[in-house]
């Protein structure tokens, strides 16, 4: 497979994963806005959602004051915001177009259809859909595309797509943790009392990652911050947890570049080794935690660059 096309498929997958992750952040913010404590800080989670995406400054520069509707529009359908869901779907579609000849018609239809439909969602339509309605739409479209990928030949393309998704996923986990954890851990790691604002904030972390329900399948006991973190980072089978995605990275690289011991593969192994060696209790001490999230982000970025250099631009 051509390096250029492989690279485009990789970016298509990253943008689709990013659209879905953004949608979950919107849901987290919309739900937090219904909490009673939101009366004190009605925009708290909306600004957190922007910060995770690294676009708070851009939003403020363009719009001045934060409003819930403003953030929703900016993150959902703003064509000028390069990380809006609309922009992600466009970038995914543009990348997919270069590989269209490798794709079953259904897959291309699903990707192109999502781009066509999102352009039809204007401010008025978005207001009617509401945050949750738009999130539903986005996730349904992304999942449809993911399902259509089943029809791809089991050669290079599925591995490249798996790599793109897992790198993006690892990246968003690192960024959400970096943003939310310092505040959460400042309140300590004592077990959570059901129904309290502190328990809700931890649940929001899981919501932001789309992990609320699958978390319950693995943790039956009382809610404890460290067990939630352990789940997010180290659960071996939940598809949206970090360890699974880190392992997918290595498998995917081996899949599309068999026999090549490139830098990216080494980095994937290094991330896994660091992750497994992480002492969660120590990591949750503020400084150690900060370093851990920085490392995770840096390593994921490095892996992205290495893949690009070694595999997609030879």
């Amino acid at each position: 497979m051509l390096c250029r096309i492989a690279g485009n498929c990789y970016w298509m997958a990253r943008y689709l994963e990013r659209a879905e992750n953004d949608a979950r952040l919107l849901r987290m913010a919309a739900q937090a806005a219904c909490w009673p404590e939101a009366a004190r800080d009605p925009l708290g989670m909306w600004s957190t959602a922007l910060e995770v995406g690294g676009s708070l400054d851009e939003y403020l520069a363009r719009h001045g004051a934060l409003t819930a509707d403003g953030v929703l529009r900016f993150m959902a359908i703003d064509a000028r915001n390069p990380s809006s869901i609309r922009s992600c779907l466009r970038a995914a579609r543009d990348n997919a177009r270069t590989a269209r000849h490798l794709m079953p018609d259904l897959l291309w239809d699903a990707i192109n259809g999502a781009w066509i439909e999102v352009q039809e969602i204007d401010e008025e339509r978005l207001a009617t859909l509401g945050a949750e309605g738009f999130v539903d739409w986005t996730i349904a479209r992304c999942r449809l595309i993911a399902g259509c990928c089943d029809e791809l030949w089991r050669d290079t393309v599925p591995h490249v797509i798996a790599l793109g998704r897992s790198v993006e996923r690892a990246d968003v986990i690192a960024r959400i943790l970096a943003e939310l954890l310092p505040k959460l851990l400042a309140e300590g790691t004592a077990p959570l009392t059901l129904g309290t604002p502190r328990a809700r904030r931890w649940r929001a972390l899981l919501d932001g990652l789309g992990l609320s329900d699958s978390w319950r399948r693995s943790q039956r006991g009382p809610l404890e911050p460290l067990s939630i973190l352990h789940f997010i980072l180290l659960h071996p089978t939940a598809p949206q947890c970090l360890l699974v995605n880190v392992r997918t990275m290595a498998e995917a690289i081996r899949g599309f570049a068999p026999g090549r011991e490139g830098a990216a593969l080494q980095t994937a192994r290094e991330i896994e080794a660091r992750l497994i060696a992480t002492d969660l209790t120590a990591a949750t001490r503020a400084a150690a935690l900060d370093a851990f999230c920085r490392d995770l982000t840096a390593l994921t970025n490095r892996l992205g660059l290495e893949v690009q250099r070694d595999h997609f631009s030879a």
């Binding site: 919309a30 739900q31 806005a33 219904c34 909490w35 009673p36 404590e37 939101a38 009366a39 009605p42 819930a68 509401g130 945050a131 949750e132 309605g133 059901l194 129904g195 328990a199 809700r200 649940r203 319950r216 809610l223």
Partner: peptide, 23 residues
């Protein structure tokens, strides 16, 4: 209701019940 009328939740401080399954 949270989906349909988020603005009403902003007008009240509604006690959450989502933790019922945990309880």
């Amino acid at each position: 209701m949270q989906r349909l009328f988020p603005e009403l939740f902003a007008a009240y401080r509604v006690s959450p019940i989502r933790h019922y399954p945990d309880l």
